[in-house]
Write a protein that binds this DNA or RNA. Sequence first.
RNA 1: GGGCGCGUAGCUCAGUUGGUUAGAGCACCUGCCUUACAAGCAGGGGGUCGCAGGUUCGAGCCCUGCCGCGCCCACCA
Length: 881
Amino acid sequence: MASRATIDPDKLPKHFDSAEAERRWDARWQELGVYHYDPSRAREETWVVDTPPPTTSGTLHIGHVFSYAQPDFVTRYQRMRGKSIYYPMGWDDNGVPTERRTQNLFHVRCDPTLPREPGLALEPANAKAKSSPPRVISRPDFIALCARVTAEDEKAFLALWRRVGLSVDWRTEYATIDANARRMAQLSFWDLFHKGHCYQSDAPFMWDVDFQMAVAQAEVEDRQRPSAYHDLEFAVESGGAFTISTTRPELLGACVGVTAHPSDARYQGLFGKRAITPLFRAPVPIFASEKADPEKGTGILMVCTFGDQTDVEWWRDHKLALRQLIGKNGRLVPVTFGSETFPSQDADAANRCYAELSGRNLKQARTRSVDLLRDPANSATGTGPPLVREPKPIEHAVKFYEKGDNPLEYLPTRQWFVRLLDKKEQLLAKGAEIKWHPEHMSKRYEDWTRNLAYDWCVSRQRYFGVPIPVWYALDAAGKPNYEKPIVAEPKTLPIDPMTDAPPGYQEAQRGQPGGFAGEADVFDTWFTSSMTPQIASRWLLEPERHARLFPADLRPQAHDIIRTWAFYTIAKALLHEDKVPWRQIAISGWILDPDRKKMSKSIGNTVTPTEPIDKHGADAVRYWAGSARLGVDTALDENVFKVGKRLVTKLFNASKFALAQSAEAGPIASELDRAFVGELRALVEDATAAYEKLDYARALELTESFFWKRFTDTYLELAKARARSEHDAAGRASAVATLRLALSVLVRLFAPVLPFISEEIWSWAFAQETGHASVHSAPWPSAADFAGIAAPADGASFEASVACYLAINKAKADANVSSGRETLRLALAAAPETRARLAPVISDVLAAARCAAHEFADDDALAPGAVAVRDAVFAERAAEV
RNA sequence: GGGCGCGUAGCUCAGUUGGUUAGAGCACCUGCCUUACAAGCAGGGGGUCGCAGGUUCGAGCCCUGCCGCGCCCACCA
């Protein structure tokens, strides 16, 4: 594109005020609609980003800018490539973190049995208020409060995203709790239910006693915890005794069996007999099981309902009794020994013991149990204390809910599940269809999928979430029929079964015999988040739109949520439509503090994003994000911000200078210019290839390096004099045209990473000239920019002129003379080929070196391309202006 | 215990299918106000590429083993 416009540098600001430019351009972009999605374009011309909805209740830190800027780079590139961009932003506000934050902020608790209090107006609680018991409020009031809290959090995120220039189409903003997201999650359930992928189960499952809810495998983590082996003596009903080893003596009352390995010689005689437990004198079957490890403990152990996952399996496989001792709140429930459920051969003794434990939490119950076990009176054998030796401390792994403070327990509760275990192969196949960046991250997905041990538990006993859209008919006795749930129909969604009545029922029948009951549980937050591509495409609601936006092109996300967000999203797309949700997934690395520790709120090493942005500018912070490769954890280094800021300043200055050359531009005809353009063309090809591979970091590095080394440090210096020449009109026109072209190309190459300074420069001349009001909707540089420019006579002539120019500069440095000093006498030497190569460009080199006269000798001994300065005399002082 | 990744200059990191003498920025040293930019420019010093073997004409890169760091997963009697 031939450039005509020039600028008056005196009319431009002396310095680039990044904060001012950030405000101005953000407003302008919104006004122009630069980032608006164009729904009229075909799927192939559209680039769809499945943006991660940030957890609004989390702490904002600099890592957010890092991971959200990276997809913005490739998306800006795609936009400049002419794609219609669908780049939404959602807020992940439903779920446990928001509830917890709301509870803390307002010092409230939710009691779903309470009625709504009209006109309830709460204020954030101060420290004094927090010393008194929390205010208990109704479910609708609690939900309203959660919504209020997240609305505030969303504002902070929105402001940050706008400040750092994410090229999001803000008309697409959504929240995972809003009506459309609720509708989509409930539609998802409806579809899965009718396809037979959903089921209810009241089998024992992982339960958090503090949150009092079930959790899925993906939310479970192991933590090393101190514990102890307690060796307890059990009696054998027909006579004799043996010792089991347990870490959970508090569950003795829940013991329903005893087992050892079938080949364990020590216990051969016991199988088929009954054991009598200490404390409670309960008779329990002794059976053989391959799952018992002869090496562990004493090789024989008690099975409780439920101490761990293996207990669940023994209980199920051997049809053992259910003696549920742990309540949903993690305290031992009241039970009576000597009953059918809790048999005992000495009910009075058993109940005396249990009175000491009932109502206590598990930790207290353990301590108390050990006390009781030290008492010989509680022995099942009558031969001394049941605890045969002091507990032996150990460290072992215990399962925790990732947000929980107490170990998970296994409780039989009714939960909704999505069947996944039978679909591992399909899940793996879908994962393999997706292009992972970096590639090795796909391993995380494969390993997780292969090792999946449970179906997906999707019900949560929470309030601020998407309700499970089902009701249960109540029989004449008021008992719910879980076998035949009433699932809400698509056209009615979203609904809340706790406030809406099912079809064919009146609200007055809620809870009445012969009436109905609403499902009180809400979905796991991932049940909604796993639908982000469909929320965007409005799956089932707008089929045409869905066809244009699904599957998405890019899913950006962090690696810690591959097993949750990525996994569930792939699972949903598989179950709903047998498709992949996106073609590519880009995994960002983590930001580590300078000591290489992960930034986290609990460690207290987070850095707020506003400070670096205020100090260095949004472009500089983006530059830092653009310097890091996908998937690579990066230590926060303030120096990189500074380097980014320096680049922005240099771009500002160099652009002012290049555009201030007021001479008329003409055909690019000079050898130096053509050779330089040849290099520029190669840069465009390389940077484009890098962006195609999502390698924005490579593209940035190439562009930046070219900009400094080939443009400002050399080409600009070499062409400067000619651009202002009074004798060589053609050469002048060629130089001016080349400067403009280079600037136009470089600014566009930088635009994805440095949107503000690029736009600023673009606005000076190119916007008007090209008719593209924003650089961000201007075409990405391509062969079209170089059409009509002849190739140089010698592709290496630019390189040769740089070598010659630098050799002269070195001579000046050796002489402690400024580069700007005039060169009075100069004797150069080079191999004959090099000399010949320099002939068409030497005048530019000499002009840059401020040299009027020179000698040039052949020297075969010099390496090809090398130029030696044999003699040089420089002016005593700088020339008068 | 299984898996993945990393280990290159004082620091942060590149190093593209194995190919001259291993790079950048920062930091450091020297010089320079030079008609875009001192928030700048020119020049310079600095590396046993974690260790040990192997393959190859040739290894930072490929193979084997080991050491260290990080992450993911598993491990509840």
